[in-house]
Nucleic acid binder design. Structure first.
Lengths: 444, 444
DNA sequence: CAAGGGGTAACCCCCGCC
DNA sequence: GGCGGGGGTTACCCCTTG
């Protein structure tokens, strides 16, 4: 135990000697010591995977990082707990930003907020239950042009500390400059990890009491290469099983070179039965926020009744995808023709509910396609054409829906997003890939 | 005549004495002199009404101002002619930028290009036929932050020249600063006029030989408040006469607070018969480049056959509108039902040509709706589904076209833009509000 | 390279809500 | 008034094509 403390003290003094720009040296040496005796930090609540980084010039508070399970009603925040700590000395947890790499390095960006200092370190005291919550962590985006300079200065400082004797080839300042330039180019400015470290303070000195741990990555919401993928609106939610139906899709910023539109079908357990990708070119991506695509053919072009699948945006580079929107493949016209004419006399509502109940056993699935639930027409029949929810989104039927296969006008393919059920349905909300509480009517 | 030359010489010496930042003092005094004896500048070719202004940092050439009648095949450039000039001394024409105001003031932006100097003055010699053509005029965008300083310096220089005695109240430098700040805010940085002046040079002195004239305004193509309005794509080009059809429209950047969608109908002489505006809210404008709107009802909701009107974007602030796209109002379903079933047996192509010939007498109209021409199907039947022209635009049929009124799928409402006819159709090209050489098929 | 574009970085400001 | 968001502008940077 004594030996361990010595190691810790060495680390802290060393790290402070380099002008207070402390780094988490990943604590490999500590991690190897016995789990039974070593205090350990644990992340109780991870941060959300995305926040808009702010420039220094964007003064004022713009809201901090929430927890991954945060919701409109019940906000959570990044939270850590220190385990196996048995002393009575007050412990502080320090959070700071590191690169999103296998071996995280100190980032040029900084944490900012209530408990943060100029260097981007946020320190909060551990409460009695050994828990610390970070309620106000913003991420300060350090301008691209400043990056090489910052890295250069860090390198010089490190060199000084190591008395240069540690460095075999005596590097000229010029080569250090060049190295900094290269490193600056390599640094991903749109993704960071948060490093948490536990400290005790004594006589103006800080002593680490555990090895540092890193949060999951937090991406920059404003960057088109890491921002959230989101389908905002489509002009139709159905098409023929033969595919090649033209669809207008409005979305949040995407990179036209890095975006696909994925159609997929799952069974009632959420297992994927089929997938295919929509057809479009870079020229069909309109200013990053709209895509005109053609649907892929369904795996069976001779289906006799409608099949429900999902559409989602997909970014191969980082494997991200948007929530899925229900999409209905319809039988060929001539197959439908006889049926259609009979059906038309039946109440639209009745036939709609019929089809919904077919799908509602999807309600309890999980895994890849995430949590989602369907609700019966009775629950959402109060939503009317073009009604809007509090966020001014269209929650009535989504756009023009006739799929060029019959003459029943709009009512033949609606997508209704019920509003009043849109909250509090479990911890995996953020991972859900399907639009929540959506309902598709088939009125053939 | 001698007296007149004196006036001119005074003006030129005066204007040069203020450190070569010469202004056109609008030449009111000159304009009043006899038209018979005074040399006069005339604009033979106005500049286009829009160009993308370039920042100093956007180095290199990006193409200059063309003339208003310029076309892909035959480029024209701003051109002026000096009339009533009878001396043999070589005349030079100088162009420079002025504000787009009733009483134009020297602008902070500068002309740049082959014959331009650092101050933004472009000087070209008059040719033997008394004509000067400006082939390479770019507009340099001077940053917002620099504007107050520039205006401040100009004010100081003016004050010095006027020996302060001209100014009744001796203004403190502070109030000059404030005035500059105010003027800077008022200056429209996205619209300029070009001032043309004729000079002769003698012994390193320049002498104006005519009063200055100003071009029509040239707006900044990149500003969303003055850029060109353009409909890029729509998901359908027809709808029921009753209106309320949802349409997705992709466009170039618009300001959601300053944009309307106008439907209008003209008779064969181009006179307006009817207009109405589409229904949408600010929330339906998606990131400035897409609008989801609902069609207005046609003036007669009980039409028995299709009616062709036009859609265009309209910006009330400056009265600008985009080219019009043909849009077809269709009769109510039950009205059409009987007709439709009979028609379906007729060849689609035949019925298409029929309807086109109805419209083709629009070809020679002019005035408000501008020049446009229709071409028969025979001319453009080579365009195929989703084919693209050299600019990668869709020139095949535009999107999904079934208008929820019959089951004839896409073919029932096409818009084909013929490619090979897309040139050389007259001097008023830039004013045309209708999409050129477009053709609408009605296949009922 | 000229002649056009589209996209990004950095910044500025707007709302609705306590 | 300032928080918690969000959209839009400014200035800049780059890419296509001939």
């Amino acid at each position: 135990m004594f030996k361990w403390i010595l190691v810790v003290v060495y680390r802290v003094v060393y790290s402070h000697s380099i002008r207070n720009i402390s780094r988490c040296p990943c604590g490999q040496n500590l991690r190897n010591s016995s789990r039974f005796s070593t205090p350990q930090l644990k992340i109780l609540e991870q941060p959300t995977n995305r926040i808009r980084y702010r420039y220094r010039s964007e003064k004022g508070s713009h809201g901090g990082l929430t927890g991954e399970n945060s919701s409109q009603n019940k906000k959570t925040y990044p939270t850590v707990k220190l385990e196996n700590y048995h002393s009575t000395a007050q412990v502080y947890i320090r959070a700071s930003l590191y690169t999103n790499e296998e071996r995280p390095k100190s980032h040029v960006h900084k944490l900012m907020g209530r408990h943060c200092n100029e260097e981007g370190h946020c320190t909060v005291p551990l409460s009695d239950n050994m828990i610390a919550t970070f309620q106000n962590l913003g991420i300060l985006f350090v301008g691209k042009k400043e990056v090489p300079d910052i890295l250069y200065r860090r390198k010089l400082e490190e060199t000084q500390v190591l008395h240069t004797s540690f460095i075999s080839a005596n590097p000229s300042l010029l080569s250090v400059r060049e190295e900094s330039e290269r490193d600056a180019k390599d640094m991903n400015l749109n993704s960071v990890k948060i490093c948490f470290e536990a400290f005790v303070y004594e006589n103006d000195m800080s002593y680490a009491v555990s090895s540092p741990i890193f949060s999951r990555p937090v991406a920059n919401q404003k960057s088109p290469d890491s921002g959230e993928l989101k389908i905002v609106r489509m002009d139709k939610y159905c098409g023929p099983a033969t595919g090649d139906e033209e669809v207008f899709l409005l979305c949040e910023k995407v990179n036209k070179k890095e975006i696909k539109i994925r159609f997929f079908e799952t069974d009632s357990d959420g297992h994927q039965l089929w997938e295919s990708f929509a057809n479009f070119t870079e020229a069909d991506v309109h200013h990053q926020v709209a895509i005109v695509f053609r649907t892929p053919p369904y795996r069976d072009q001779n289906i006799k009744s409608s099949v429900q699948v999902y559409v989602q945006l997909f970014r191969p580079r980082d494997g991200e995808y948007s929530e899925g929107r229900p999409f209905t493949y319809k039988p060929k016209e001539h197959d439908l023709d006889g049926v259609e004419k009979k059906r038309r006399k039946i109440s639209h509502y009745n036939s709609g509910v019929e089809d919904i109940s077919n799908n509602s056993n999807n309600g309890g699935n999980s895994g890849f396609v995430g949590n989602h639930s369907f609700t019966s027409l009775a629950d959402s029949s109060h939503t009317t054409q073009s009604s809007r929810d509090s966020n001014n989104n269209n929650i009535g039927y989504y756009g023009h829906s006739s799929c060029s296969h019959d003459s029943t006008k709009r009512e033949n393919c609606l997508q209704i997003k019920s509003n009043h059920l849109n909250r509090n349905y479990g911890p995996n909300r953020r991972k859900a890939n399907l639009i929540e509480n959506s309902i598709t009517l088939f009125v053939n």
